[in-house]
């Protein structure tokens, strides 16, 4: 996946089905043009903390439960880095657990969204997220 244009959306999601559904929705709304999908936390950290290219996406959609390095760990790394902590991170997860929500907010997450089981609602949630963070939200420069 080459990145000719600046990465807008970084999707970190280990479940390929969920990832496909998410990308499908974003595509429908023309929001997936500069999207990078990574399968786990390790890949994500390698991508974000690349010495050669500074990859600063407009928005990171982060799953929590992933093999090797989990979402919470990725979030902690991002939010404790002086340069990368300005990147908006939205946790997009199946977990409704209180401790995950609390822990994420403590680490400085910008939003926490529980993936609805029903596809209608899922589509709506992802679409709104993309629209909000890419079109409405004004990121720091």
């Amino acid at each position: 996946m080459t990145t000719s244009a600046a990465v807008e959306i970084l999707l970190i999601e280990d479940n390929p089905d969920d990832a496909e559904l998410t990308i499908r929705v974003l595509k429908k709304h023309n929001l997936a043009n500069n999207l990078v999908h990574l399968q786990d936390g390790e890949e994500a950290l390698r991508f974000l903390f690349n010495e050669e290219a500074s990859n600063i996406p407009k928005i990171i959609l982060l799953d929590l439960k992933m093999p090797k390095v989990d979402g919470i760990e990725v979030l902690r790394k991002i939010k404790s880095d002086p340069v990368r902590k300005v990147i908006p991170v939205v946790v997009l997860t199946s977990s409704k657990e209180e401790r995950d929500i609390v822990e994420s907010y403590k680490l400085g997450v910008n939003a926490y969204v529980v993936k609805p089981v029903e596809f209608d609602k899922f589509m709506e949630a992802v679409a709104q997220l993309g629209l909000f963070w890419l079109l409405l939200n004004e990121p720091p420069r």
């Binding site: 199946s94 409704k96 596809f119």
Partner: peptide, 11 residues
């Protein structure tokens, strides 16, 4: 349960 069972259902 919360995480692993919901994901396949969503799929």
């Amino acid at each position: 349960v919360s995480h692993d069972l919901r994901a396949p259902l969503r799929s």
